[in-house]
Design a protein around this nucleic acid. Structure first.
Lengths: 259, 259
DNA sequence: CGTGAGTTTGAGTCATGTCAAGGACCGTGG
DNA sequence: CCACGGTCCTTGACATGACTCAAACTCACG
């Protein structure tokens, strides 16, 4: 199924020296990534060991079970973490947007399949030196703990979605999540009219939501028929009334997404 | 539904001075809890600020949204973390067994409902002093990061279960998870014949698995009819052949649960 | 203007949910 | 000791939301 399509272009991402000169101070994810709390002297030490890699849409970053000798942050683009059963059933377990962290320091093999869904640039560190840095720079390990706790909260919200929401609520929730993350990227909150771009195909949305792609398609179009969303092309979505969408998502309130 | 039943005995757990003299060195979770990596001098400093609380079966530990001025480790017993939609649909998002950590340092309000399902003893720390300790003792924050990463992995495994497994596979997976955790408690691996005790009611299992309690009941009894499990009373389960159970769980292999 | 990936739509099936009734177990009080 | 009530569990009949299989449409790209 999708796993097959993905492995077609499975190879290691190219080292990308074109980013070699990019200064951390000017990095687009400077204040959100794992390095967010670092002072400029600490940042300089990280800068000394970083390197960039880039991946094309559909390209595998790592495959679950394979050796993984680096960790890194998504600088730009979107990647997914997925898990599969023997018979091909696939569940997405992570959606990596800019500033999100990939890999586990202290573990040498990947646990999940990581795949770029758009062009992705990763700011990487070799695992060992990064581990050293973690020990030397408390601001680094403190930030990683913070990010991991946030991810755990997100995973638990996701579990509620997977276990208890209807297909319609799942779709509405997903669109609301994307709208919130896009908004927080630009430091605004999703207000009245909002325009977003879905970062995933229908099939990838299905893997995110624990549905089939047909059900995703049907429910997206049902929300459109009901005036909750407008569609512009396959990926473009306009939300005439964000609050209306949240109502459809089944969540009680807008879960305090201010920051 | 279940939420109503739980709130019936919602009150703060009694401080439990009877455990006041228990030395950390002799603590049953000494080498598994958040304090696992602490040297004895570090442990002594933690010991100075710890206190115990105990909770009766069915009693709420905290309610989502409420103030929570402490964090702590489960010393004995079983507690659950749950999340609910307005209309009462409930999803369990955490199952806390001995040595598991409850609460988020640096957050003053609880995110989830935490409820004791058996008698529970918690080793607690006030939030502020614990935060101080986190800054002073790297072994503490390093261990918390490690535990949080493990929990995130468990949450992602759980997401695969919720999103993609059949009811039968969910039940088999749940029993296998419990068997593994019981085995690791006693430092053995779940081999041929294994006896376990389910720590949850059928309803709580349903909330764990994203099913109804009727479906749980039916599938548990189906596994019994098929000879995968034997039932002894409502909670007792005997596994004549652990590998056979794992086959039913849908996972490809026994996911390396050695440690 | 053909090709293929992504998407939509329809018809039929099935796994799981819903509603309802009854059984097993256990502690309590008459 | 037994009847009672409550909690938990089981079982049956039926409803339905989501899945499966199949076909056709859209659109970007060569």
């Amino acid at each position: 199924m999708s796993a097959r399509a993905l492995t077609q272009i499975k190879y290691v991402g190219a080292d990308d020296p074109s980013h070699g000169e990019t200064s951390c101070e000017e990095c687009p994810i400077r204040y959100r990534a794992v390095c967010a709390h670092c002072e400029s002297d600490e940042l300089a030490r990280l800068e000394g060991i970083k390197f960039y890699r880039s991946y094309e849409p559909g390209q595998a970053i790592v495959w679950g079970g394979d050796q993984m000798d680096f960790v890194g942050s998504v600088v730009s683009g979107v990647a997914t973490l997925t898990q599969t059963l023997e018979d091909g059933r696939t569940q997405m377990v992570g959606l990596l947007l800019p500033s999100d962290f990939l890999g586990r320091p202290g573990r040498s093999t990947a646990t999940y399949n990581a795949v770029a869904t758009t062009k992705v640039v990763l700011c990487c560190f070799r695992r060992k030196p990064f581990g050293e840095m973690m020990n030397r720079l408390p601001s680094l390990s403190r930030r990683l703990l913070e990010m991991t706790l946030d991810e755990l909260d997100a995973a638990r919200e996701w579990m509620l979605l997977l276990g208890r929401k209807t297909a319609r609520e799942k779709i509405a929730s997903f669109i609301a999540i994307i709208a919130r993350r896009e908004a927080s990227m630009h430091m605004r909150s999703p207000g009245g009219r909002t325009e977003i771009e879905l970062p995933l195909t229908r099939e990838a949305m299905a893997d995110y939501l624990g549905l089939t792609l047909e059900t995703v398609s049907r429910q997206v179009n049902a929300l459109k028929r009901d005036g909750i969303i407008e569609l512009h092309g396959k990926r473009g979505v306009v939300l005439p009334d964000f609050a209306r969408l949240v109502e459809e998502s089944g969540d009680d309130a807008d879960g305090g997404w201010i920051s």
